[in-house]
Design a binder for these strands. Sequence first.
RNA 1: GGCGGUAUAGCCAAGUGGUAAGGCAGAGGUCUGCAAAACCUUCAUCGUCGGUUCAAAUCCGACUACCGCCUCCA
Length: 472
Amino acid sequence: MGLKVYNSLNNEMEVFEPLQAGKVNMYVCGPTVYNYIHIGNARSIVAFDTIRRYLEYLGYDVNYVSNFTDVDDKMIKAAKEDGITVPEVADKFIKAYFEDTKALNVEPATLNPRATENIPDIIKFVQALIDQGYAYSIDGDVYYRARKFKTYGELGHEDLDTLESGASQHVSADELAKKEDPIDFALWKKAKPDEISWDSPWGKGRPGWHIECSVMSTKYLGDTFDIHGGGIDLEFPHHENERAQSEAKTGKRFVNYWLHNGFVTVGDDDEKMSKSLGNFVTVHDLIKKIDPQVLRFMMSTTQYRRPIRFSQAGLDEATANLKKLQTAYTNLEYRLKDAEEDGDPKVDQEIRQLQADFQDAMDDDFNVQNGIAKVYEIAKLGNVYAERPFVFKETIELIMQRLKQLSSIFGIELSATAFNDADVEKLIAERNQARADHNFQRSDEIRDELKEQGIVLEDTSQGTRFRRENKR
RNA sequence: GGCGGUAUAGCCAAGUGGUAAGGCAGAGGUCUGCAAAACCUUCAUCGUCGGUUCAAAUCCGACUACCGCCUCCA
């Protein structure tokens, strides 16, 4: 069948064909690092990490670049409030970013460039736009002539006249006075006294918000690359402006596939979670209370374009499903010790079919809901198989391997229990003797004792087994 | 106002013409000394109204509700 993705540029499903066979270059807009990431940021990070993992599952070599915006108005404000420098604010929250995303089992990007590390390239890029007539400097600022870029508005699906009337209401009079056209946007901003700044041909200043992404993406991925991702709120104007800047400069198509993730919503009104609305929960705080794997699982099993309603019910459901997968894995693992060599061709075939179904689902614009349904079917098949009186080792291992492999696409690491704790085995033996003697008081005592240590006993037709309960 | 999205059981959620996947919760059952785990069974006519069709959740029209973008934002 082959992978199809929904391209925001034309709002249509398209067959995914990377520029270079077997290789995918993708860029995902990262956060402005003036605070801990909230779960809306995490959603985007997880969505594209899951997409990346699936591309890797398909065999693509993925070059994954995601930036940090480490200088802008909010960074400056945060630094002033805390009495530290802008780079200090950035360092603090970039460090936290890596801690939080690691907890969510996000694969590290190939590269995480920072805006401030690319200032010379940004200046060159802006100068090129001025030279080509796409930008103009005025009083230390540089603006982009949006109207000159003939397809401006195409990505945002907006027409210029509508934009103009909208823009004029929100732009400050001061800024409006400098701009040739209200829809023009800043490439370079003149520094106010005491603000962090860099020297440039237009005086001391700093980059505008959109230019850094154009510069860093084309610098590290080429003038044209395969996938550009980010939240749906970035589609316009941020990505529109990136497109305008990049295509004006290079004369080439900037991005082949634009992918935009939906929001995390909260409350009875399903309101968007965002820093500006102040209704956000940071990952930093949340994972003190809940298992980060649960959060990861909840996010990665919702299709990236759909909104995620953040709720206790959603977390509970994710907890139950996550446990179900791990339990199935453990149930199979337990049977390895008495499994016979060889495999069961019929069951093996069923597993392979389910995996093919999984892939068909995921190929449809990363339809994770249909995908995970197939993983649940594999888990169920595994549970049924594990209850058979006689089982084959190769089949057990095949099911376990597939469960683990497919779960990992969702960022879930199923783990082995390792049933070989001599002290526990000794107590189990004692308990089974007690049970044989019908001394149930003693047998329950032993079970309670082990439970205190986080070890749960389960009696099966193949004997008693134990597993370690997740503390959270 | 312009543009885009969504509306399926208590909840989450698949499903673009042929009589509603999957999961959570619930109910009943099997197994078990008890329990746990697992498995089995059970649980909807698809926002409203109208139209097209032998046949529609799926196509067309109208309407309603909610969300988002157009301004910093994943």
